[in-house]
C-alpha cells in the first residue's frame, strides 16, 4: 500500500513541474511586452522600465527566471494583482472557500441523485425508468450549463420569484467570515434568517453546477452496475441465501463503485471548470469568476496564479482519488 502511494505521489511531481513550466512561459508567450503585462503600466519612461525589468528578473536568462519563479512558489509567493495590488495567494485564499462550498454542494447533489438513479436504472434495465434516467442523463451531459443556469434563473427567480438571482447571501446580513463557508458562517452567527438566505442563494448555482457530474455519475454507475450484476460472484452471493438488498448493496455495489470513483475524481476537475461559468452567471465570488475577470482585465499575475492553483488542486484531488481507488480495490492495493 505504501509503495503504491509513493509511486502515485512520484507521478505528481513531474506533472506539477510541467504545469509550473506552462504557467511560467505564459508570461513570455503573450503578445506584447512582459514588463507591461506584469506591471500593468503602459508607456512608462525608460528609467522606470529598466528598473522594472530588473525587479521582475527579466534581464536574467530564462532558466534563472524559471528557478526564481519556482523558488518564490515554494515560499508561497505568486506575485501581486495588478488591479488590487493584493498578493495573489491571499486573494485566492479569500475566494476559494466560496468555490469550495459551491463545488461541494454540487458534488453532493450529483452523488445523492446520480448514484441511486444509476443503480435503479441498472436494476430496472430496459424499462421506462431506465430509458428516462438515460435520456435525462444524456441531455444533462450535453447541456451548456451557462444556458441551463439562465433557464433556472428564468424559471425560479424571474417567473416564480422563489430564489435570488445572484450572490451568496442577502446584503442585509453582514457576517464576519469565520470559515469562509457561508452556510457554516451563517449558522455560527445564530441568525436563522441568514442561514436561510445563504441556502436560497446556493440552490440554483448548485443545481447548475451539479448537472453535468450528476449525468456522468448516473451513466457510469448504471453501466458499471450492469457489468457487475452479470458477474459470477453475484450469483454466488445469491446462492448463499443473501437478501436481495445485501447482494446489491454490498456485493454488487462495492465492485461497481471502483470505476465510479475514478469518474467522480475526474468530475472534480469538471466542477472547477464549470465554476468558471456558474460563478460568472450567479455573481458568485469564487475563483472562477475571479479568473475570468482577471483575463478580461489582463491581470496576468492573477491569471498565472489562478491557473496554477486550480491545476494544483485538481492534481491533488486526482491523487487522493488514486489513493481511495487503492483502498476500495484490493487488487491494486496488494498486488503492487
Amino acid at each position: 500500500m505504501f509503495g503504491f502511494l509513493l509511486r502515485r505521489a512520484g507521478l505528481v511531481v513531474p506533472t506539477f513541474l510541467g504545469i509550473t513550466l506552462l504557467v511560467f512561459s505564459l508570461i513570455h508567450m503573450i503578445p506584447g511586452n512582459a514588463v507591461e503585462a506584469l506591471s500593468g503600466e503602459h508607456g512608462m519612461d525608460p528609467a522606470r522600465y529598466s528598473r522594472l525589468v530588473h525587479e521582475f528578473g527579466l534581464d536574467q536568462p530564462l532558466y534563472v527566471q524559471y528557478f526564481d519563479y519556482l523558488g518564490k512558489l515554494l515560499k508561497g509567493d505568486l506575485g501581486f494583482s495588478i488591479v488590487t495590488h493584493e498578493p495573489v495567494v491571499r486573494e485566492f485564499l479569500t475566494l476559494f472557500p466560496a468555490t469550495l462550498e459551491l463545488s461541494f454542494c454540487a458534488m453532493l447533489l450529483a452523488l445523492i441523485i446520480g448514484l441511486p438513479a444509476g443503480i435503479l436504472a441498472a436494476l430496472k434495465r430496459n424499462t421506462f425508468l431506465d430509458y428516462s434516467v438515460m435520456g435525462v442523463s444524456l441531455t444533462g451531459y450535453s447541456m451548456p450549463i451557462f444556458w441551463w443556469a439562465l433557464l433556472l434563473i428564468l424559471l425560479f427567480s424571474v417567473t416564480l420569484g422563489w430564489t435570488p438571482v445572484s450572490g451568496r447571501i442577502d446584503i442585509l446580513f453582514d457576517l464576519p467570515p469565520v470559515t469562509g463557508f457561508m452556510l457554516v458562517d451563517s449558522l455560527l452567527s445564530g441568525e436563522l434568517g441568514a442561514f436561510r438566505s445563504a441556502l436560497s442563494h446556493l440552490i440554483l448555482p448548485t443545481i447548475a453546477l451539479g448537472t453535468i457530474p450528476l449525468a456522468v455519475i448516473a451513466r457510469m454507475t448504471r453501466s458499471a452496475m450492469l457489468e457487475v450484476l452479470r458477474e459470477d460472484y453475484v450469483r454466488t452471493a445469491r446462492a448463499k441465501g443473501l437478501s436481495r438488498l445485501r447482494v446489491i448493496a454490498i456485493h454488487a455495489l462495492r465492485n461497481a463503485l471502483i470505476p465510479v470513483v475514478t469518474v467522480i475524481g475526474l468530475q472534480v476537475g469538471t466542477l472547477l471548470a464549470g465554476a468558471i461559468l456558474t460563478e460568472t452567471i450567479f455573481s458568485w465570488p469564487g475563483i472562477g469568476k475571479w479568473l475570468v475577470e482577471a483575463i478580461h482585465r489582463r491581470d496576468y499575475p492573477v491569471v498565472q496564479g489562478g491557473i496554477l492553483l486550480s491545476a494544483s488542486i485538481i492534481i491533488l484531488v486526482n491523487l487522493s482519488v488514486d489513493v481511495l481507488y487503492g483502498v476500495i480495490n484490493p487488487r491494486i492495493r496488494r498486488s503492487s
Partner: peptide, 14 residues
C-alpha cells in the same frame, strides 16, 4: 448450497 465452474470469478474480489 452450490459451487460453480469458475472459482476465480465466483468469489467477490473486494
Amino acid at each position: 448450497a452450490m459451487i460453480f465452474q469458475d472459482p476465480m470469478t465466483s468469489l467477490n474480489p473486494c
